[in-house]
Amino acid sequence: MKETVGVLALQGDFQEHLDILAKLGVPAIQVRLPRDLERVGRLIIPGGESTTIGKLLVTSKLLQPIRARIKKGTPVWGTCAGGIAMAKRIADPEKGQAHLKVMDITARRNAFGRQLESFEAKIFMPKVDRKPIPVLFIRAPVFESPGKDVEVLARLPDKRIVAAQQGKILVTSFHPELTGATALHQYFLSL
């Protein structure tokens, strides 16, 4: 039996991740409660509002269980807000913003500015695909100050970090799930 992938479904574009996993023929479920987490072998934390997702992680009693699973080696991928949740440090956190703090990196929220600065791009990630991957940056964060165990997977032309990996933890500033690109999902499933 194939391992089931969980997509954190507290808020955000979790359905788009589920659609891509369905396209790849991978069994996947929505994760809203601690008991859902027990059924999955890996987890995607989608895009959304990082402050909202942080609060819902606490009220839904998922923050500690997810952190524990990641520490035990469950592969996890955060896109945009999900990536912010993964970072040990947030550059300008909202007061009391809850996050998982599992990756030795700093997330800078809304690094490009407001929605008018959102953009589409093709990102070249040699480790993931030979071809550039079409993605969306929506009020996106960037990542800074990676620790020594963190591998940078993609930078913008101005050198800012937009994808990184630490062991089985993957973060991306952008959304491949909104363009229908499957390469990053396949890469995550290989971790």
Partner: peptide, 8 residues
């Protein structure tokens, strides 16, 4: 895309 992020 921003509306997608607001869902839920």
């Amino acid at each position: 895309g921003l509306a997608q992020m607001l869902k839920g």
